[in-house]
Every structure is written in structure tokens, then in C-alpha cells.
């Protein structure tokens, strides 16, 4: 049995999605064209994950096993639609950036995966911590990936377009286009995610080796 702290921190390294838990790749690849897309999608997913974990864990002794997946999907979809409506009202620009990937949170395997593997078997407190941990891990990963791709691809960092919080890190002359545009194009998404995963593998390999020695 994990301690409560471990329940939270496991999402930040040991099981960090989408690296360790290779799930939820579609949003990871699609919305990380900018830093804003990354953290926006991460937080939206965290909200849905925490809420659905809470409700599924609370109802885990009531939900009939045979229709559990259908019930999970209804609960998850409800929170996705709530997120969709609230984002449209309060963060319209972010909602436009993420587009079709907001309703698609409903089929993000991370959420259904946590519902099935964790929340339906554990108490409310643990499920909440699990949701926050995995959610923050996902947000962190997406934000780093987004920042990396945007910086290398455009030389800018979009924090929050609605509030005009953009930073130009690498200034360009008037009318000049950034050369490493590859990073913000679809192929760059795959390669960049692959490179980050490679780096994580190398780090864990090294730490495993030093532990063994």
C-alpha cells in the first residue's frame, strides 16, 4: 500500500503520462504547438480527471459491474461538456486553440484508465490524490513539450493569449520567417515527443545502473 504522498507523487515521475503511461497521445501531439495549448489542455484534463475520479470513487459500491463502463463514460462526458461550456464562456481564445480536442477529452484513455484501474477500487481521498497527481504530471509534460516546440519553432512563448502574455525569446527581423518551423508542424510533434521519451529512458537507465552498482 502506498502512502498518501506517494499516491500523489507517483503521477509526477513514476507513472507520468504520456511518458510512462503511454496514453493520451492524441492531445499530447496535437495541442502542444504552443505553451498555452499545453497547459490549457493539461488543466482541462486534470479538472475532468479529478471530478470523474471523485464521483466514480464515491459511487463505486453502487454502480453495477456490468454497466460500469457505460456509467463511467456518462460521468466523464458530463464533466467534459461542463469544461467545454465554461471554457467557451471564460477563456474563448484558449477554447478556440484547443478546438475539437476539448470534446475529445472524453476518449482520453488516461481518464477512463484511471477510473477503471484506480477510482473504482479505492476510497475518495486516494482517488482525489491520484487524479491530482496524474493530472499535474500530464499538465507538466504537456507544458514542457509545448514550450520546447514553440520556442524552437517560432522563437516565442505564448503564456495566455487572451491576456496578451506573449514573450518573444528569440527576436527576428521584420518579415523574416523562423527556420526551424518543423517543430510546430505535425512531424515535429512526433519527433519531439520521441526525443523527450528517449531522454527519460536514459535518465532512468542511468539511475537504475547507479543503484545496482
Amino acid at each position: 500500500m502506498k502512502t498518501l504522498t506517494q499516491e500523489f507523487t507517483k503521477g509526477l515521475w513514476e507513472q507520468i503520462p504520456p511518458f510512462r503511461l503511454v496514453l493520451g497521445l492524441c492531445p499530447t501531439l496535437a495541442v502542444t504547438k504552443s505553451l498555452e495549448g499545453g497547459w490549457g489542455m493539461g488543466l482541462a484534463t486534470t479538472f475532468v480527471l479529478v471530478c470523474s475520479n471523485l464521483f466514480i470513487s464515491a459511487l463505486r459500491n453502487v454502480i453495477p459491474p456490468k454497466v460500469r463502463i457505460a456509467t463511467f463514460i456518462v460521468i466523464i462526458a458530463t464533466f467534459v461538456v461542463i469544461t467545454e461550456l465554461v471554457m467557451k464562456a471564460y477563456t474563448p481564445m484558449l477554447s478556440e486553440t484547443l478546438g475539437v480536442f476539448i470534446p475529445l477529452i472524453v476518449v482520453n484513455c488516461i481518464i477512463l484508465g484511471r477510473a477503471e484501474a484506480f477510482a473504482s477500487k479505492n476510497g475518495i481521498g486516494r482517488s482525489l490524490l491520484d487524479g491530482f497527481g496524474i493530472g499535474f504530471g500530464f499538465t507538466l509534460a504537456l507544458a514542457v513539450l509545448g514550450a520546447l516546440r514553440e520556442l524552437l519553432g517560432t522563437g516565442k512563448l505564448t503564456m495566455f493569449a487572451q491576456a496578451n502574455l506573449d514573450l518573444t525569446i528569440i527576436p527576428l527581423g521584420e518579415g523574416r520567417e523562423f527556420l526551424f518551423k518543423f517543430m510546430v508542424d505535425p512531424p515535429g510533434a512526433f519527433v519531439c515527443l520521441g526525443a523527450m521519451l528517449l531522454l527519460m529512458n536514459l535518465i532512468s537507465e542511468r539511475s537504475a545502473r547507479s543503484k545496482a552498482a
Partner: peptide, 25 residues
């Protein structure tokens, strides 16, 4: 019954949120 109740509550919650966000938009 369980599925029905969950779906009903979900619908209720969504109608509420919809009613709150429409005027804001």
C-alpha cells in the same frame, strides 16, 4: 435505474451550466 439516475443528474447539471454560461458568452 442506476444508469437512468446518473444520466438524469448529468442532464440536469449540464442544463444548469448551459444556463449559466450562455449569458456570459
Amino acid at each position: 435505474v442506476v444508469l437512468g439516475i446518473v444520466a438524469f443528474l448529468a442532464g440536469l447539471a449540464l442544463a444548469g451550466v448551459k444556463g449559466m454560461t450562455t449569458p456570459v458568452i
